[in-house]
Amino acid sequence: MNNLIQTLRPRIESFRESLYLLARNKLSLIALIVLVLLVLAAIFANVLIPYPQDIADASHIEIKLQPPSAEHWMGTDELGRDIFSRVVYGARVSLRSALGAVGLSLLIGIPLGAIAGSFGGWVDNVIMRLTDIFLSFPPLLLAIAMVAIMGSGLNNAILAISLSWWPWYTRLLRGQAISVKERKFVQAAETIGTSRLKIIFKHIIPNCISPVIVQASMDIGGVILTLAGLSFLGLGAQLPTPEWGLMISMGRTYFPDKWWYCIFPGVAIFITVLCFNLLGDAIREILDPKTRKK
């Protein structure tokens, strides 16, 4: 127990410093608060939403396409379902998919980049040419092509996005790894006789990870957009899942007369993506050693 406290102490201290740095920038603080609320909403969506049955296939044709009112804060859609309930539940769908897609790409991208960067030579060449091939297609186009092959659906869309996204992380990590492996502690590990694999995973990757984290947190916004795009095209989430992109796609036919159908999911996407971008900036500031005391 005592050991645990001792281990945690420096982490707590550095967390306090992070908060201090974060609080200096009001905009990123706001972004963080909004995101925390969003995550809470996603987690407790079942309890929060006023019409839980509306997230599935319920239909109340008699109140279809009603404008925002006291009962339905964001109006209703063409089946009379409460748009507010669906937007809130959509946060869960979007966040989960975005985190999944980014996580999966990190899982592929980081080890490959670290191996390419620290081994160099032909290993580097093979891995980097592979990423070049992936990078030569626009990511959205690549994802569309992959979904077309695998069949549409939310999970396939997540898989397709991660497969088109990992090369960015590989590249980023490789660049970092090349500079980190020249540091003396890596050389020290070599003279000690530490195995190659251990050097990569214990020495190199932990010291390369900061810019990747920054990039990933900014990418979450991008992935949410891409996912919404795929769903809009009918390749991602399928009816009746309350996915923001899909909702915009469905509401498109009623725009601009029944503006609330499109606008509210759109605003949800906009706020989420903006906040993730701001958060990415904030994280960069926190992780930048120059703003730290050491």
Binding site: R183, K184, F185, Q187, A188, A189, T191, I192, H203, P206, N207
Partner: peptide, 14 residues
């Protein structure tokens, strides 16, 4: 074994 010049970089900061 070797002791390097710069102790700021020869110990893994993490």
């Amino acid at each position: 074994q070797i002791v390097f010049q710069d102790p700021y970089w020869s110990l893994n900061p993490r």
